[in-house]
Every structure is written in C-alpha cells, then in structure tokens.
C-alpha cells in the first residue's frame, strides 16, 4: 500500500477514536452518580481534593486568607495551595 494511503488510514482511525470520545463521555455520564447519590444527605460543603491543609480540604469554609493567618511569616507552603484558590466573595455585604 502507498505510504500516503497508510497515513490517511492511520489518521482516519485516530480521528474515529477522537470522535468516539464525546460518545463515551455521554455514556459514562448516563451510568454514573449512583455512589455519590447515596451520600447526598450528608450535605457536604466541599470536595475532598486535598487533605493536607484546612484551607485546601474545605476552601469554601476556610478563614479568609487562611494560609497567611497561621503565624506572621506563614507563607503558603502546601503544594495543593498552589492549585486551589481561596474563595472570592462578590457580595460587599455581609
């Protein structure tokens, strides 16, 4: 087979896999959530993304500027703190 046809065949296969990704995602979305639904009555306020610091375990519930309140020279030093941002409140009040 010509090299150009081999390449086109390869690209077509990869493209077909690429186009199947949204279908796979939709299928997974339809069949997911069972285990999470059981825990809905917990009414959690935060996701368990990182457990190393209070303000990355519960960013929505943390003190304002929590990383800097531990002691006067407490600069951010937890790795997860560089990924998870503190809450930004849009309300002026309260």
């Amino acid at each position: 087979m010509r090299r150009s046809l081999q390449f086109l065949l390869f690209t077509a296969t990869v493209l077909a896999v690429f186009l199947l990704l949204p279908l796979h995602a939709r299928h997974e979305q339809r069949h997911s959530g069972g285990e999470l639904r059981q825990l809905r009555n917990l009414h959690v306020t935060d996701l368990c993304l990182a457990t190393e610091a209070r303000y990355t375990r519960h960013p929505a519930m943390a003190d304002r500027h929590a990383p800097f309140q531990e002691h006067p020279l407490a600069l951010e030093h937890f790795p997860s703190g560089s990924l998870i941002l503190p809450t930004r409140l849009n309300r002026d009040k309260p």
């Binding site: 796979h24 995602a25 997974e28 979305q29 990182a50 190393e52 937890f78 790795p79 997860s80 990924l83």
Partner: peptide
C-alpha cells in the same frame, strides 16, 4: 501535585466530560 503532603487522598475517578 494535589497529593502534596497528604496521607489520605482521593482517587479521582472522574466522569468523562
């Protein structure tokens, strides 16, 4: 990066989007 120094960390079994 998210694990950092955590001892307990979740397995991110995310639903594809």
């Amino acid at each position: 990066a998210l694990k950092g120094w955590s001892v307990i960390y979740p397995r991110f079994q995310l639903v594809p989007v």
